[in-house]
Amino acid sequence: HSAEQTEIAEVPAWDSLNPGTLQLVSKLKNPSGSCSVDVSATWWEIAGFKEPCVITACEYVVSLWKPLDAWQWEKIYSWHFTEVPVLQIVVVPDVCSLVCVALGNLEIREIRALFCSPDGKSEKQVLLSSGNIKAVLGLAKRRLVSSSGTLCDQQVEIMTFAEDGGSKEKQLLMPPEETILTFAEVQGMQEALLGTTIMNNIVIWNLKTGQLLKKMHIDDSYQASVCHKAYSEMGLLFVVLSHPRAKENELLGSPVFQLTVINPKTALSTGVMLYRLPHGQAGRFLEGDVKDHFAAAVLTSGTIAVWDLLLGHCTALLPPVSGQSWSFVKWSGTDSHLLAGQKDGNIFVYRY
């Protein structure tokens, strides 16, 4: 099979899925002794040039890797943390040479910005917010949204970075009366923001005015859905959801992602498509990432599965490598690569 082959006419059985649709192009080995937790890609200015860099996060170290020739990588900066471990990397689109991280144990306790001194010789970090933080997301136009506090004093805050990543403006959004689990941008609508809540509602804000526009209840068959992507078309809102708490269905296989359509005017919604695992493949959604019309998920089986959301089915499976289960997966925002990581610090870069 060629690496370019991505079209499959019929729903394939798992043993006929083409592993060649994912071609390994590069590998990074993070030698840090602590457990690897996340990976991402971002633009960083190095010696006057913006380079597509990879960011890796272990529990107590976040590292920036710059590309060398022939798909080699060189670690150029490391930020160290001593008290609170890193939970996730938060890339802020449209900001160069700055990345945010969420730190905490089970829940986020701090959000920090990581950058370098103007001469590029030393790593810097600054605390952006602290407290009982529930969700955080980087948004277009150099913005970062986070929610913190409990039900009665929940605060939803937008922080806007200056072009150089420096001084910040803050704005509050109207909080919904239920805990927010995740945020999602609406593709092509920079002033719209979605949130998913613990009560299985999707809320929508106007970022310009801070108004909470609507609370929309979605299908109760899956609890605590997470929204990975949203777009508006012909007056309807389409959302790609995952169901981390869905029970495995032996007959049908576990639905890993779901496309749902919502009419924001009436708050009525209906399922459009379920993205299931191929027959014979077991596992539930652990974590995943959606970019354009491609969705990738790490399954409880330790395998990574990729779906083409337009074709409607799984197009590639990536079983554990060297007997090691996959722990996290991200689409690179700087190109069309898939970044797959294992707990021991191995990061693999695949061309899809």
Binding site: G210, K214, N263
Partner: peptide, 23 residues
């Protein structure tokens, strides 16, 4: 899915909801 099940659709839903919602 059937569009009719979702009720009346508006292409300007974002602007309309913004004008209706409390600020």
């Amino acid at each position: 899915c059937n569009k009719a099940d979702l009720g009346p659709i508006s292409l300007n839903w974002f602007e309309e909801l913004s004008s209706e919602a409390p600020s």
